[in-house]
Amino acid sequence: MDTRRLETGRLLLRPFGPVDLEALYLLLRDEEVNAFLPWFPVKDLEETRQFYEQRFMGQAYSLAICQKGDDIPIGYIKAGTEDSRDFGYALRREFWHRGIATEAGRALVDQLREDHVPYITATHDKNNPRSGGVMRQIGMHYCYSYVEQWQPKNFPVTFRMYQLNLDGREDRVYSAYWDRYETHFVEEGL
């Protein structure tokens, strides 16, 4: 993927830039938005800049979610390039429950498929089932659950691991979390 923009019916997905720091700060400072994310809310624009540089700058599949017409980020969507190819997203609270994460996710999945990325994984805290709903709506399938002492927040979390194989290899299951964490299991009915 190059730095082209992805468009959907309502959204524009594009790389983040330094000009987006204030919009990103609105997202990253919100305690409720960040409750199920693996970091604490940022305190100021400097922490936002550090977050941007570490997690978004130069990352091929870390994109700002913008509404068409204003080009101001209301969230992000990403897929990592490391072995887990971790898929994730966050939206400002006032944009929740509108299908935006699903719409953005489908567009990114289409791009990943076009770019021959073999698979993506995603995890969600079992106490955040709506996130699992987004994963299922973009075609991901539940594989297993595991318990992790979540850092830096330092409390145990049961995560549900989902995967989407984009290359047709339906038998592939990313097993690193299963192997890494002593407590792991498959939940029935998911």
Results as ranks from 00 to 15, higher is better:
129 P>Q: 02
50 Q>K: 14
173 V>Q: 05
71 D>T: 14
147 V>C: 10
19 V>Y: 12
56 F>A: 14
139 G>N: 02
137 Q>V: 00
78 K>S: 14
71 D>F: 13
28 L>I: 07
144 Y>H: 12
74 I>P: 01
157 V>N: 03
26 L>N: 13
53 E>Q: 14
36 F>E: 03
143 C>Y: 03
35 A>I: 06
158 T>W: 08
51 F>P: 00
57 M>N: 07
4 R>T: 15
1 M>N: 09
157 V>T: 08
148 E>K: 14
43 K>P: 09
50 Q>N: 09
180 R>L: 12
149 Q>S: 11
143 C>V: 02
182 E>V: 10
19 V>K: 15
83 D>S: 15
3 T>G: 11
137 Q>L: 08
21 L>P: 02
57 M>P: 05
113 R>Y: 07
12 L>N: 05
155 F>I: 06
108 L>N: 01
75 G>M: 04
69 G>M: 01
152 P>L: 09
160 R>A: 13
2 D>R: 10
100 I>V: 08
12 L>I: 12
45 L>W: 04
114 E>D: 11
144 Y>S: 12
129 P>G: 03
153 K>T: 01
160 R>E: 15
105 G>T: 00
96 W>S: 00
8 T>W: 05
142 Y>M: 06
100 I>H: 04
189 G>D: 03
34 N>K: 06
78 K>W: 06
81 T>L: 14
63 L>N: 09
15 P>I: 11
128 N>L: 08
146 Y>I: 02
57 M>R: 14
85 R>P: 08
2 D>A: 08
27 L>Q: 00
59 Q>M: 13
169 R>V: 01
149 Q>C: 11
190 L>A: 02
72 I>F: 08
137 Q>M: 11
46 E>A: 13
38 P>I: 07
21 L>I: 14
1 M>C: 03
162 Y>M: 07
7 E>C: 01
